[in-house]
Structure formats: C-alpha cells, structure tokens
Design a binder for these strands. Structure first.
Lengths: 224, 224
DNA sequence: CCTACCGATCGGTAGG
DNA sequence: CCTACCGATCGGTAGG
C-alpha cells in the first residue's frame, strides 16, 4: 500500500523523502536560482531521487511555489499580531512590529527571497490573494504610524512612505544577512528597529505636555 | 519596404527594429516576468517580428541581460560621482547620494528590478564584476557615513548597517513607485533623503551658515 | 526580415 | 521508489 501522506516511518527502515523535504529543497533552489530558473529535476537531484518520484510528494512545481508563498505570508501576519499584541502605544507597536519583521527576514532568508522575487510566477487566484495580504500588512503598519503622528509621538510627512521605507528596509535584510556574519539576527533587528523609529521622527515624550517638534529631525543617539 | 535605419525620434511609422529597441523590449519583459520567465519569442512578439529576426540585433538572450546590468551599474556609479561632486560635508554628500539613488530607482524601475532579481542568472565573469561594483557603491556610502560620525554630524552605531538600510530602502522604491501615483519621483526622492539623514542620526551644526537652514531633517511638512 | 528546422530540456504521466 | 516516455517549448542556426 503506497503511503499517500508523508509517513516518516517506512516499513524497511529506509527513510523516504517527505513532502516537507521536497518543499525545503525547492525553497533552497528557488531562493538561489529563482522559480523559473529551477528545474524540477534539480529538486529531485538535491533529494537524491529521480524526477518522477518527486510527484509522490507534490502536485506540481507551481503548487510548491504557492505553498511556500502562502505559508510564509500567513506567518508574517501571525508574527505581527503576536508582536504587537494588545499594546496601544504607537512607538511600542512600531518597535515590536519592526523587530519581528526584521528578525523574520534575517532568519527566513530563503522564504523572503522567493516571496519577493517569484510572486509574478504565481497563478492568478493565489497572486491576488498574496497581494492583498501584503497590502494588509503594509496598511496596519501605516496605521500605527498615523496613530503616532496623531498622538504627537511621531513626526513624519507621509505615513505611507514611511511604512514602505521601513518594511522594505527590513525585507532587504534577507539579501545580505549571513548567519556567520559579524552581527546576530537579533542585533540586526534591534538596529533596524532604531532606524524605523528614527524614520518616523519618534521623540520620546518627556512628560504629559505635547512638545512641539523643533524641526531638526529630533532623534539623535539618545533614543537608542 | 520599411527603412532599415530610421531616426529614433520619428516613432510613429513602421520602422525597422534596432538593437536599442530589442534591449528595451527585453528590459520590459525581464522586469515583468524575470529573465528565465521570459522567452526570446516573447521579445520578438513585443517587437512584431519573428524570433530568428531578433538575432540580427542581438548576440544572445544572455547577452541582453549582461548589457542591461552592466549599463545600469555604470550609470549608478556615474550618478553617485555627479551627485556628490567634490563636496566635503558628509551630510551634504549623503543627501546628494541618497537623492540621486532614490530618484534613479523611481525613474528606472525596470532596470532596478532586473538588476536586483536576475543577477543570479548572469554568467560568471560578469556576475563577479557586477558584485564588485555594487560593493564599491555600498562602501563609498558607508565611508560618507563614517566621515559624518567622525565629524560629529551623524550619530549611528553601525555605518555598515546604516548604509545597507539606506541603499536598500531606495532600491525598493522601484517595487512600488508608479508614475501616475500620488507623488512625483522628486517628492519621493526628497522624502527618502530625509529618511536617510534620520537613519544616520544627523543633527545640523547649530552655528553653521549653510544655505540649508534646518529644513533638511525637518519632520514637518511646512516646506512641502 | 522570413520559413524551416535543430538538439536539448522542460514539467509531467504511465505503469509498475 | 524506478524506467520509459510524452508533447511542448526552449534558445538558436541555416539559408535565403
């Protein structure tokens, strides 16, 4: 009886390839060479099997991409909700949201590269859904920034441009971060969080009175 | 019989395809679908000719990519040198460098998308050269930031992280900017320049007689 | 600029 | 998990 679902415990003790292993190999190759630049035969070779055997663990090459993208975007939104929780202070919300996003892009580089490069290769129902999710994420961040402006904590012209800049700056971490580099993922995330607060012109409230911005770009090293 | 060679300015009539036209069509398609996602036949179709005719104007598909990437990176370095000129003030140098880079990514979106997505598809002599050029650009920006820190104008922990953040933030403009959007390329470039100065913790010297006054890092929208 | 055509490789299926 | 094999398409060439 052929195992339809991934069952790691094969009868003869020889560990077969699982659906997750296929997904992981595809993720590595898609990230390195792009979706269209990766042949199904390369995924099979990475797993030490022949191409047709791959189809015992996946539906199609396209389905691999869809699964990777959807799974990743779900996790990003989960990250955001977990990070900001029920906090109300805009600065703290932005801090947590940025930190989680930056951290994710340092620790899930492959996923980030695939999502940001190969979305144009997605079939149509998925592509629209994916765009909506990215837009949702951008909007909640933008709303946090707008809240901060309203409360007088942030001083920036355009919440939209600020949210674009902050989010894309974090995304780009996936392009250069190395696990064996000079800085840990946490250190990078912390620094990028500072950058985010500077971009929105965060000035910690000294006390209750809303102080007028002095117009010189407020943040210096003191808010680190 | 269509003219083999024609004035590029008279674009209305049916003209013979030129090498530049092939490059431009390839640029559009590579940007939209990626290098491996674009078939040579699609480039030909975009120009209204058959695939084999394309080879009167190009050497190979790969050569198109190489030409696009090398040309673009040359222009980026030219941009930088032209923008900063012989200025010495770190803030002014960073301002000009950021503005030029941001502006380029708003006005040359296709080139930016191709360079940032399809570099892994470059053949080896070109790929290394291209990486070196990008690294050179990053280093000069990093040096500007380090200078600003030394002179006391900038206050930021890591010049390297700050330069990554600033450059990649500008690169990402190519992903969302629309010519018919709410802001002009110049407006976006100006805002991103402000973001860059905030990221490095720029505080204008109080006794400076620079023509810039304090509007540079100003978070208020009074001058916009 | 075209028609005719090439070998190679693509993603995927048949059938064990 | 395999061998055998499919039609489609790929980038590119021959030869006008």
């Amino acid at each position: 009886m052929p195992p339809v679902r991934a069952d790691p415990g094969s009868a003869d003790g020889r560990l077969g390839v699982t659906a997750d292993a296929v997904l992981d190999a595809a993720l590595t190759l898609f990230a390195a060479r792009g979706y269209h630049g990766t042949a199904v035969s390369q995924i099979a070779a990475a797993l030490g099997i022949r191409t047709p055997s791959l189809y015992n663990h996946m539906r199609s090459k396209q389905d691999l991409l869809e699964t990777i993208v959807e799974r990743t975007l779900d996790e990003v939104l989960d990250d955001f909700r977990t990070a900001v929780g029920d906090l109300t202070d805009p600065a703290e919300r932005l801090r947590r949201a940025t930190r989680a996003y930056a951290l994710r892009h340092a620790t899930h580089r492959r996923e980030a590269l695939v999502v940001n490069r190969d979305t144009t290769s997605l079939p149509e129902p998925t592509m629209t859904r994916m765009r909506e999710r990215r837009r949702d994420h951008e909007r909640v961040v933008r709303a946090v920034i707008a809240d901060g402006i309203d409360s007088g904590a942030f001083h920036v012209d355009s919440p939209a441009l600020a949210s674009f800049a902050i989010l894309e700056m974090c995304v780009s971490i996936a392009r250069w971060f190395r696990e064996d580099g000079a800085r840990s993922a946490e250190q990078v995330a912390d620094e990028y969080t500072d950058f985010a607060l500077r971009i929105v012109g965060f000035v910690p409230a000294p006390d209750s009175t809303d102080r007028q911005a002095d117009g010189t770009g407020g943040p210096d090293g003191s808010d680190r």
